[in-house]
């Protein structure tokens, strides 16, 4: 599923280690969309910082949203009886992490990884 996205990262010149991290993060975000919102989209873009380039991943859906974001970001918190590692893990895998969510309206997670 993440193969095409990963190719973008390869083109950007990420190391194989970083590509694995990026692919894993994308997989987690996609999985959350499928489990909790059923459908949504994942966009990838290159981003230019002042003296670096990176990749921006935006995972958004119009699903049920998250009522307590702080709780959802905690290791081990899950409403589906799963490990509860997805969101906090993605946060650790990537360099920048931003989440907005409105109950009943949906969730958007934006993450960035900068090229080393």
């Amino acid at each position: 599923m993440a193969a095409d996205e990963v190719r973008v990262a390869i083109k950007l010149g990420f190391s194989s280690g970083d590509i694995t991290l990026i692919a894993t993060a994308i997989s987690e975000l996609a999985r959350n969309i499928l489990s909790y919102a059923r459908q949504g989209e994942i966009l990838l873009r290159t981003v230019d910082g002042s003296n670096r380039t990176g990749i921006l991943i935006v995972a958004s859906d119009e699903g049920p949203g998250i009522s307590d974001i702080r709780q959802a970001l905690r290791d081990g918190f899950s409403t589906s009886g799963s490990l509860g590692m997805g969101l906090p893990g993605v946060r650790r895998l990537m360099d920048e992490f931003e989440i907005t969510s409105e109950p009943m309206h949906g969730t958007t997670v934006k993450v960035k990884k900068w090229k080393q």
Binding site: G17, T24, G89, R92, L93
Partner: peptide
């Protein structure tokens, strides 16, 4: 190695 490192960062 890369997979192992991604896994532990994810907390797995």
């Amino acid at each position: 190695p890369e997979v192992a490192f991604a896994m532990v960062q994810l907390g797995l």
